[in-house]
Amino acid sequence: MNKIEKHLQGIKTVAIAGHVRPDGDCAGSCLGLYNYIKECFQDIEVDLYLEEISEVFSFLKNSHKIDSLYQKDQEYDLFISLDCGDKERLGSAVKYFERAKHTICIDHHISNVGYADINHIISDASSTCEIVYTLLEEDKISKEVAEALYTGIVHDTGVFQYSNTSERTMNIAGKLMGKGIDFSRIIEETFYQKTYVQNQILGRALLESILLLDGKVIISALRKSDMVFYGVTSKDLEGIVSQLRVTKGCECAIFLYETGNHEYKVSLRSSDLVDVSKIASYFGGGGHKKAAGCTMVGTIHDVVNNLSLHIEKQLKEN
C-alpha cells in the first residue's frame, strides 16, 4: 500500500471506523489517522465512527468528535477500516462501508478476511497504530497524532512486554516520543491506572478463578448480575485476562463475561504452546496467536468445556 496521501487524491469525503468495543489500538489508530487527515488535508471532509471509547482515552485530540450515533446518511468517497478483522465487526458503521465508493482496510490481525477493495494486512506488526505510522509522512506527524499512535502501540504490546514487540516497534515508538509526547503519563494513566471499582471487579475475577488441565489453564467468568452489583461495564474489564495469563504454570487464560441470555464475550490469552487465534476463529472470532476473542452461547459450563477441548488438543500436540 502506498502512503495514505496517494489514496486521498481526488477524495472529498472520508469515513473512518474501527471494531466494536474499541480498545486502545482501535481508538488510537482511528484518532491518529483522523487527526492527520484533518490537519494535513483540510479540504477533505472526514468523519470518525466508533462506539463509545473508554474515558482514559478522552485526552486524545478530537475524541469528542467521534460519532457514536451513526445517524448520518451519507455515501463517502472513501471508507477506511482500522484494526477490524471483518466488516461485521464494524458494527453500525458497516452501512457506510457498504455504500462507500472505495474502501481500504488497515489491520494486523492474522484472521483478517480481506474484505475491502485494498487490504493492507501486516500480521507481524505489533498493532494497527504501528502500521498507520508507516503510511504517514513522518515530518507531517504532529504531537497530537503521535499521542494517539503511541497510545495504541502501548496497549497492544502491553507496554512493550508482549512477543509482538519488535525492533521496528521500538524504533517507531522512539520516533513518536521524539514528537514531544508525555509518554510516561500516557502509560500510567491509560494502561496501569485503575478506578476503585475496576480494582474490585479484578479482585473478584481473580478470587473466583479456577485452574484446569493440571494447572495449565486458568479461567474466570462474570455474570451480568456481578457486573450490575459492582456497577461496571465491559470497559471496566480491560486487563483482567492479561492478569490471569501471568499466573505461574499457566499456558492459557480464559476470561468471559455475560453479554446476554446465555451469551458470553470470551477473551483468550496464551504463552507459547497454545494458538488462541485458531480456537477463536473456530467459534467465529479471531485475533492473534497469543491474544484472541470470540462470542459464544450456552452456559458457562458449556463454554468452558468447548474451549478446553480445543486447548487440551493443542497442549497434547505440543
Score class of each variant (00 low, 15 high):
A100L: 04
K143W: 02
G178I: 15
K179Y: 05
I104E: 11
A116I: 15
A93Q: 01
D124W: 07
F183L: 12
L90W: 08
A116Q: 12
K143D: 03
Y96W: 12
D86S: 12
L90R: 12
Q74L: 02
I104K: 06
Y76Q: 11
H64A: 13
Y115P: 00
I153R: 01
I53L: 06
F79W: 04
I106F: 14
E138Y: 05
N119R: 03
V154M: 01
F59E: 02
F160R: 00
Y70L: 12
T165W: 07
A116T: 14
T165F: 07
Y70T: 11
I181W: 04
R168F: 05
D182S: 15
F59Y: 13
Y133G: 03
H102L: 14
D73L: 14
S126G: 02
L60Y: 09
L82H: 09
I118A: 05
Y150D: 00
K140Y: 03
E98M: 01
E167K: 11
I53R: 07
T134E: 04
D67W: 10
A148C: 12
L176T: 06
S123C: 13
F183N: 13
K61D: 09
E88N: 15
S81V: 11
C84L: 09
D83G: 07
S184H: 13
S123G: 11
L149N: 00
H102R: 15
L78S: 10
L60S: 11
D83H: 07
Y96F: 15
L176V: 08
I66W: 04
H64N: 14
V132D: 01
D107R: 07
S92I: 07
A93L: 05
D107Y: 03
A148Y: 02
V94M: 03
S54C: 10
H155V: 08
K143A: 03
K61V: 10
E137N: 07
F97W: 04
S126V: 02
K143V: 06
G85H: 06
I118L: 15
T134M: 06
S127L: 02
T128P: 06
I66G: 02
D73H: 14
D156A: 08
A146S: 00
S163N: 12
A116C: 15
T157P: 08
Q74T: 00
I110T: 13
K65V: 08
G180Q: 14
C84G: 06
I80K: 15
E52A: 10
H64Q: 12
V154D: 00
C84V: 14
C129E: 05
Y76S: 09
R168V: 08
D107Q: 05
E144I: 10
A93G: 03
E138F: 06
S166A: 10
N112F: 02
I118G: 01
R99C: 03
H64R: 14
L60D: 05
F57T: 09
V145K: 03
K179M: 08
I110F: 11
S184P: 09
M170E: 09
I172E: 00
C129N: 06
A100S: 05
H155Q: 10
A93E: 00
S58R: 12
V145G: 02
